[in-house]
């Protein structure tokens, strides 16, 4: 799974660092536990302004998960997307 977190001015102001922190925290805690799908990988990339906020007002923070754009992203939303994928082999059964 590839996550891009925008750290442009708008997104930093509206909490991009909080999202980065919660993803790092997941990597160090729940994702180290047994039961994670062995095929799952998490690659978090910090990116410059992706330009969403210039197209439309009030969309920050912006996070891109496997090429899907999440506007007004919240840490809980992004964390749950990550965990659903990391444990998908258990969930689907």
């Amino acid at each position: 799974m590839k996550i891009k977190v925008c750290v442009g001015s708008n997104c930093t102001m509206m909490g991009a660092d909080g999202i980065l922190d919660s993803l790092e925290n997941l990597k160090e805690t729940i994702l180290t536990k047994p039961g994670v799908n062995p095929a799952f990988t998490l690659d978090v990339e910090i990116v410059r302004c992706v330009g969403e906020c210039k197209k439309k007002k009030n969309v920050s923070p912006v996070v891109v998960v496997d090429d899907v754009i999440y506007r007004n992203a919240s840490r809980e939303e992004i964390m749950s997307i990550v965990l659903d994928k990391a444990f998908d082999h258990i969930m689907t059964k």
């Binding site: 001015s9 708008n10 210039k54």
Partner: peptide
């Protein structure tokens, strides 16, 4: 200061 950057649409990282 961040509010000023946003108001002026300044992207320091660029």
């Amino acid at each position: 200061l961040m509010g000023m950057f946003v108001a002026k649409e300044i992207e320091p990282s660029e």
